Amino acid sequence: MPAAATEAQSAALRTLLRSLGQIVLQPNAFTGACLLGAWLLSDPRLACAALTGATAANVSAVLAGYRENDTRAGLHGFNGALAGLAAFSFIADNATAAAVAILAGTGTAWLLEPWSRRLRSRGLGYFSSPCLIVTWLWLPLVARVVQPASLATESTFSAVQLSHGLFAGLAQTGFASGALPGFLILIGIAAASRRHALWVLAGAGLASAAHLLLGASASSFDAGLLGFNGALTAIALADCGMAITLGGIVISVVLQMAATYYALPAMTAPFVLASWCMQWLTGRFLRGTGMPEAAERVEAGGRVTSPASVGRAS
């Protein structure tokens, strides 16, 4: 009996860590542990936020009778973790933030199943869209005004500044800040997929460079605010081909710039919308040219990682 209880606890821990790993589209418990370490380095409140939201979402998924394999892969928990991170990022009071994190995490789990079915019928992955929908519902109640970024920028950067801004962009994929948390997240991604690690660096670098060339501020680059949507888009579309991935990064930059100009709380919406655009456009093009099998590969390549990958996850 003690051995069975220990195994159940271990399985629950792996499920929770995979939920965190899925934030960067990796169904890997070690990746989740690296993200947890990144939050602890950046701000322990974020670690509590992610664990609270993921736990609420996973419990709600179990109570709702969702597929156990999907829950074990972290597919039902990661939007809850993101919802918890958003709550603690936008709400200063810890008690209020914790309550919102639990409610929002639960909301993402209940929304996920019908929403994902609707998207799957169109060949689209749901990514972080449940978190965005739930967060946008309560965010207007929070009295925090998002200020538009300054358009002033420096003409040159040192190698240290460039590396700091690049890794800070990786940290922002999980609402963290700082170069060291970003480097830890990169290690976690590389442990699951070295190819995805290269793409996440390329996505963050290309998106940051594009923003700076178009007039974004150096302070935004230092904070990692320019690269995280490009980084996530690159991972999401990495299996769809280089041209599609680069196109998605460009679209994410344009969408993020528009959101910044109008002072909108876009969060990861540019990544989600850019990935959807490339999946939809490419799928229509390939089907129109009589290549349905290729279209299906593109659509599958951009979806959130499925339980089939759990076997190789730690």
Rank of each mutant, 00 (worst) to 15 (best):
W138F: 11
R118Q: 07
A231L: 13
A98Y: 01
A101M: 02
A176E: 08
V250N: 02
R120T: 09
S217A: 12
S220M: 15
T156S: 12
A243G: 05
A29T: 04
A263K: 01
T106S: 14
G290L: 10
T96H: 09
V250F: 15
A12W: 13
S89P: 07
T245I: 06
R120F: 12
C277S: 11
R122P: 00
S128Y: 05
Q26R: 05
L264M: 15
R303D: 14
S42E: 06
A171V: 10
A87S: 08
F183H: 01
F90L: 11
R67V: 02
G311A: 12
I249P: 00
R67N: 05
F175L: 14
A223C: 04
T233D: 00
Q22E: 03
L198F: 11
P130D: 14
G107K: 06
A231Q: 04
L206S: 00
P292C: 08
A190S: 13
R194P: 00
I133L: 15
G247S: 11
L237W: 06
L82P: 01
I189N: 06
I249R: 02
G74I: 07
L132E: 09
G311M: 06
D239F: 14
G248I: 13
N28A: 13
A99R: 11
N58W: 02
A101Y: 02
F30A: 14
Q172L: 13
A179Y: 02
Q22T: 02
D239V: 03
A216G: 06
P2N: 15
A223Y: 07
L180F: 03
V310F: 06
Q9S: 14
R284L: 13
E68K: 10
A197G: 05
A12P: 05
A73S: 08
S252P: 14
G290P: 00
M1H: 13
G215F: 12
S306G: 09
D222M: 08
V145K: 03
G53V: 00
E113L: 09
W276F: 09
G227P: 12
L35P: 02
R45K: 15
L273G: 10
Q256G: 08
S89W: 04
A308Q: 09
V145P: 04
A109G: 03
A149F: 15
T156F: 10
G178Y: 07
F228N: 02
L13V: 15
S275D: 00
P270E: 04
S19F: 11
A197E: 00
R287P: 01
F78Q: 01
P130V: 12
F183K: 01
L51W: 03
V272I: 14
R67Q: 13
D222T: 10
P140N: 08
G301Y: 11
F175R: 15
G77A: 06
L286C: 09
R312L: 07
E7R: 13
A209N: 08
M257H: 10
